[in-house]
C-alpha cells in the first residue's frame, strides 16, 4: 500500500475542542485515482492536509510508502512534500510575483537543481500542458483554468508519486473543470501517478475510480467507480 491510515484522530482546539476526524481507516494503493466527498465541514481538507504532511494528527498511524509519518522534523516533512507529494489547491496558490515558468521550476530549486536544467524541465512541462506561450506571464494575467494547469505543472515537475488536490475545480467553470480533471485522469492513466481529489461535485468525483465518502469524521461508503457512471459532469448535480 502506498498510503495506509489507521485510526486517525484529529481535534482542533481554538478555545473549545472540535473533534474533526474520529478514527479514519483508509488504504490507497499505488496508481489509484481516488476522490473524497462529504458535506462541508466534514473534515475532507483536514484529512488531505494530514496526507500531505502539511498538518499533524493526534492519534493513529499514517504510513506513507511503508514509512511511519509521525513527529517528523520540518526538514524531513519538507523532503516528502518536495519529492513524493504534489499539491494542487482550489485557490491555485501560485506565487504572484513569479512568472508561470518560475512558479513551475520552484520545487526543483529546493532540490538544488541548476538554473538551466530546471528552466528546461519547466518549459517542457508547460509545453506539454499547452502553456508554452504563457510561460513568461504572471498569474494575474492568466485565466483560472490556465492558473490551475500551471499549478498542476508545478506539482508534477518533481515527478511525485502522489498528487493531492483540494477542490481543484472549485474556482473554475464547468468547461475548464473538465479540462483540469481530464488532465489529472490522463496523468493517472499514462504516468501512473496516484491521485487523490477532494471535491463537492459529483461530476468531478466521477472521474475517479474510487469515491470515498466522509461523514461525521468517519469513512462512510466507499464506491468503486471503474465504469465512471456515478453521475454526469454537471455543476447542477451537486450532491
Amino acid at each position: 500500500m502506498l498510503i495506509e491510515l489507521k485510526g486517525i484522530h484529529k481535534t482542533y482546539d481554538n478555545g473549545q475542542p472540535l473533534h474533526v476526524l474520529k478514527g479514519i481507516d483508509l488504504s490507497i494503493d499505488n496508481g489509484e485515482f481516488v476522490s473524497i466527498m462529504g458535506s462541508s465541514g466534514s473534515g475532507k481538507s483536514t484529512l488531505l492536509n494530514i496526507l500531505g504532511i502539511l498538518d499533524n494528527y493526534d492519534e493513529g498511524e499514517y504510513h506513507l510508502d511503508g514509512h511511519l509519518i509521525k513527529g517528523l522534523k520540518e526538514r524531513e516533512a519538507a523532503d516528502y512534500r518536495n519529492r513524493t507529494i504534489g499539491f494542487v489547491f482550489q485557490s491555485f496558490n501560485l506565487i504572484p510575483f513569479k512568472t508561470a515558468v518560475e512558479n513551475v521550476e520552484l520545487p526543483l530549486f529546493y532540490q538544488g537543481v541548476s538554473r538551466t536544467k530546471r528552466r528546461e524541465a519547466a518549459m517542457q512541462l508547460l509545453d506539454k500542458l499547452g502553456l508554452a506561450n504563457w510561460a513568461k506571464h504572471y498569474p494575474n494575467e492568466m485565466s483560472g483554468g490556465q492558473k490551475q494547469r500551471v499549478a498542476i505543472a508545478r506539482a508534477l515537475i518533481t515527478h511525485p508519486r502522489i498528487i493531492l488536490a483540494d477542490e481543484p475545480t472549485g474556482a473554475l467553470d464547468s468547461k475548464t473543470s473538465v479540462e483540469v480533471m481530464d488532465l489529472l485522469g490522463q496523468l493517472n492513466r499514462e504516468e501512473k501517478v496516484t491521485i487523490i481529489v477532494v471535491t463537492h461535485e459529483s461530476g468531478v468525483a466521477n472521474c475517479a475510480n474510487k469515491i470515498v465518502h466522509i461523514k461525521d469524521g468517519l469513512i462512510g461508503e466507499i464506491e468503486l467507480n471503474s465504469q465512471h457512471h456515478a453521475s454526469t459532469f454537471d455543476k447542477n448535480n451537486i450532491k
Binding site: E74, A78, R81, F87, Y110
Partner: peptide, 12 residues
C-alpha cells in the same frame, strides 16, 4: 506557506 508546501526547508 506555499514555498513550504512545495518543499522549502526552514533554512531555505
Amino acid at each position: 506557506g506555499i514555498r513550504k508546501a512545495i518543499g522549502a526547508k526552514p533554512k531555505d
